[in-house]
Design a protein around this nucleic acid. Structure first.
Length: 820
RNA sequence: GCGGGAGUGGCGGAAUGGCAGACGCACCAGCCUUAGGAGCUGGCGGGAAACCGUGUGGGUUCAAGUCCCGUCUCCCGCACCA
């Protein structure tokens, strides 16, 4: 046969064939082991980029491989389709976000389809569709009823460019995660999810995430930021309570001043009417003028001011001055800190600047009693600490905490860095928060039967920064679900991360109009067996999704309490060493590549160029190399399939060449299977396939071929290649005379006996240096090997006149002779 | 500052403690061809060689890219969290 490899025709032909056959549609099947494979769904920008191609190519290999291994594979795709770009486009071009988004989805879906991915498109979902956000709102109400959704006034992160608030997790180095503007603080009434209630479980259950990269687990651990300490209650001279949180309560005898955050409510109280009122207020104004970044930068010069009041140390009865500074955070702990210059480097600097006393209370080993040149933060022995003197400080920590608890002047507490999740957004293109405000009944949840609260269409998109929802003449006015009287709707919408915190559940029962999902279906499919996406979601999305799953578990809606059993975080796609981006002009468009070389080539290259976790350097000529490889497979296959014969019987006796080919084939089966399933090393799997192609080609160049051996080799080649390059494999499979889809075939099995070779080459080393090689029968023992080596005529030459100390013979590998 | 990861040919990358550089790209030579951005064959870390080579200095071991200690560089995350 001499046909050209026409990838364009082949790819569109099989894509529509698979679609017509409903090949990738799955339903629950109790006879099969389920496998839920999920790639992070994209925001429908309208343009597929290489990061997507990589993410989804990795997923598709796994999906197709698992299917061939007999699993019932759920492999869905959808759209994270609420969000700012649509709204910004509306403001700029006057197009409503809804049709704009739908068009983007349509074009991105087309692009995805040209990649030949094995999605069950019947389960496609979009978070901006009423049929989806209906249930996002319903889930909000469930959390609300559990007391996990609440409104409070707080100093929140405000992005002046996006004109909305942001969650803590969305502020990167003081900048907006999305648009990079500098984030301000604003005092606003906002909706929060009480993720802090789950802090400890989110932390503890990291241990359950055996299939997650360590890196991600550590990042989450740090983000939760658990610290154990003691809350010690200091008092003012007037008897007002001033609790401080400390992890170093063993240093409490060394307190020489106290510091409050400028925002601490006690500050205003303590200065009222005093001579300190004016200068302190001036200082507070100065601090509050600082941007959020400057305020939290460790470069910031520590400054403070005495506020004219004193606090009493409950352990010593000593009076210490109260200061406020620019480095104490109101949001963490109690917003008040005890100053122990001798044992905290920040306090040490501060004390030097403002001449606070420095009292050592923990002695370093062999300390001569001289002044500290720096804060001593290590362990030591207690001094200047009353009845605790002489104890190692670790022991004193326990004793002092006991003492404080017994005396009622302190209690052991655990603090977390994690804050509650701020979910309000002052924007239009998101799921409306289903709450109304009634003058009589106050804040009330919308009745579940009245959901969804639909986004109004009669809105204006103006660049004023005001939420377009507020421009709707009809949206705000409603009736109270309790008294039926006039009420006003909540105008904020939900953070899009809420929508993506449960989409993996909806896929299990994607179009259920009656409920968010059917419990049985979710219990069948969940947890996600393999989740794949970018590491940039290590904290935000992955933490929120874990929180949601736990909350829904507690609500009795799902059985699992962790959503993702295994996680694979893929690296970025780079060009010239940096991330592809429009501003750098180094973007390679997937569409162009597919047009020039086809989807199979694009997929193959992106999987071959690097292991998935690592960053991948784009290389145009290497892409051509992959294209040439597929052409080679095509030529080899089409030319040899006439010589091959599927029906031919394997001869009883094989020639050495035939055995050799057979061995390569079975080695490849083993290697490719293991590389896909155990290590995700698709690059080495592909190189094993390439080696196999080289072997087949070598074999075919010899005189006389066995139809049976060749047929096994060619069929196996296509089967192994099919998860990576599904179209060309399918086409060649059919050309070779098969009548059913290659993707419905079982993964080939290797025969261990065929992996064994008769003879192997053994390396002879002397003192670890290679001196010679020796071909011996396979399977020799260590002793036999030693004998072979010492009987070799080159033996004396290898030794070089030295005397043998020891011989180590490793069967199957080498012999090392230690000489002196 | 703290935490994590990575440094291997010209390049992407391979190597259960056991032959460093699989596989591919680029490059070189030859063949084929009217032609080659096609295909085929061979070569391809350095060195004339002995040998030397996995950022760098030590160590463990018969044997180290791989394990241990130190150090340098780069990348990522957190960063005044009391």
């Amino acid at each position: 046969m001499d046909i050209k490899y026409d990838f364009a025709e082949i790819e569109s032909k099989w894509q529509s064939y698979w679609e017509k056959q409903g090949q990738h549609h799955v339903t629950e099947d109790s006879d099969k082991e389920k496998y839920y494979l999920l790639e992070m769904f994209p925001y429908p920008s309208g343009k597929l980029h290489m990061g997507h191609v990589r993410n989804y190519s990795i997923g598709d290999v796994l999906a197709r491989y698992k299917t061939m291994k007999g699993f019932n594979v759920l492999h869905p795709m959808g759209w994270d389709s609420f969000g700012l770009p649509a709204e910004n486009a509306a403001i700029k071009h006057g197009i409503h976000p809804d049709p704009w988004t739908r068009e983007n989805i349509a074009s991105m879906r087309d692009q995805l389809k040209t990649l030949g991915l094995s999605y069950d498109w019947q389960r496609e979902e979009g978070t901006c569709l009423p049929e989806y956000y209906h249930w996002t709102q319903w889930l909000f109400l469930q959390l609300y009823k559990m007391g996990l959704a609440y409104k409070k006034k707080a100093a929140v992160n405000w992005c002046p460019s996006c004109n909305t608030v942001l969650a803590n997790e969305q502020v990167i180095d003081g900048h907006c995660e999305r648009c990079d503007s500098v984030v301000d603080k604003k005092d606003l009434e906002q909706w929060f999810f009480k993720i802090t209630d789950y802090a400890q479980r989110l932390l503890d259950d990291i241990d359950k995430l055996g299939g997650w990269p360590n890196k991600v687990k550590i990042m989450q651990e740090n983000w939760i930021g658990r610290s154990e300490g003691v809350e010690i209650t200091f008092t003012t001279e007037d008897g007002e309570l001033l609790p401080v949180f400390t992890t170093r309560h063993d240093t409490v005898f060394g307190v020489t001043y106290m510091v409050l955050a400028p925002e601490h409510p006690m500050v205003a109280k303590l200065i009222r009417g005093s001579a300190y009122e004016k200068p302190v207020q001036e200082f507070i104004r100065k601090v509050s003028r600082l941007s959020n970044i400057d305020r939290t930068s460790s470069e910031l010069e520590k400054e403070g001011i005495f506020i004219g009041a004193y606090a009493i140390n409950p352990m010593t009865g000593n009076k210490v001055p109260i200061w406020i500074t620019n480095y104490v955070l109101y949001e963490y702990g109690t917003g008040a800190v005890m100053g122990v210059p001798a044992h905290d480097s920040r306090d040490f600097d501060f004390a030097h600047k403002y001449n606070h006393q420095i009292i050592p209370v923990i002695a370093p080993l062999n300390w001569d009693g001289s002044e500290f040149a720096a804060a001593f933060e290590e362990d030591g022995v207690m001094v200047n600490s009353g009845q605790f003197d002489g104890m190692p400080n670790r022991e004193a920590m326990v004793k002092m905490a006991d003492y404080m608890e017994a005396k009622g002047i302190g209690k052991r507490v655990v603090n977390y860095r994690l804050r509650d999740w701020l979910i309000s957004r002052q924007r239009y293109w998101g799921a409306p928060i289903p709450i109304v405000y009634c003058e009589k009944c106050g804040e009330q949840p919308v009745n579940e039967t009245d959901l969804p609260v639909l986004l109004p269409v009669d809105v204006e998109f103006k660049p004023t920064g005001e939420s377009p929802l507020k421009t709707s003449p009809t949206f705000a006015k409603t009736t109270c679900p309790v008294c039926g009287g006039e009420a006003i709707r909540e105008m904020d919408t939900m953070d899009t991360f809420v929508c993506s915190s449960w989409y993996f559940l909806r896929y299990c029962d994607a179009h259920n109009p009656e409920q968010a999902f059917d419990r049985e279906k979710v219990d069948y499919w969940m947890p996600v067996d393999q989740y794949i996406g970018g590491v940039e979601h290590a904290i935000l999305h992955l933490m929120y999704a874990r929180f949601f799953t736990k909350a829904l578990h507690d609500r009795g809606l799902v059985t699992v309490d962790e959503p993702f059993a295994n996680l694979l975080t893929q690296g970025m796609v780079l060009k010239e060493g940096t991330k592809m981006s429009k501003t750098k002009g180094n973007v390679v468009s997937p569409e162009d590549i597919i047009k020039r070389f086809g989807a199979d080539t694009a997929r193959l290259f992106i999987l071959f160029a690097a292991p998935p976790e690592r960053d991948l350097e784009w290389n145009d000529t290497a892409v051509e190399g992959c294209y040439r490889f597929l052409n080679r497979v095509w030529r080899l296959s089409t030319q040899l399939m006439e010589l091959a014969d599927t029906a031919a019987k394997m001869p009883d006796q094989l020639s050495a060449d035939e055995k050799e080919l057979q061995r390569t084939v079975h080695t490849a089966i083993k290697k490719v299977g293991e590389d896909i399933s155990e290590r995700f090393n698709f690059n080495t799997a592909i190189s094993a396939i390439m080696e196999m192609v080289n072997s087949i080609s070598d074999y075919a160049n010899k005189d006389g071929v066995s139809a049976a051996v060749l047929s096994e080799a060619l069929d196996t080649l296509l089967l192994l290649l099919s998860p990576f390059a599904p179209h060309i494999s399918e086409e060649l499979w059919h050309l070779a005379g098969h009548h059913t889809s290659i993707h419905k075939e079982s993964w080939p099995q290797y025969q261990p006996a065929l992996l064994v070779v008769d003879h192997i080459e053994i390396v002879v080393q002397v003192n670890g240096k290679i001196k010679g090689r020796l071909v011996v029968e396979n399977g020799l023992t260590s002793e036999q090997l030693q004998q072979k080596v010492s009987a070799d005529q080159r033996y004396q030459e290898w030794l070089g006149g030295k005397s043998v100390v020891k011989i180590i013979a490793i069967p199957g590998r080498l012999v090392n002779i230690a000489v002196k």
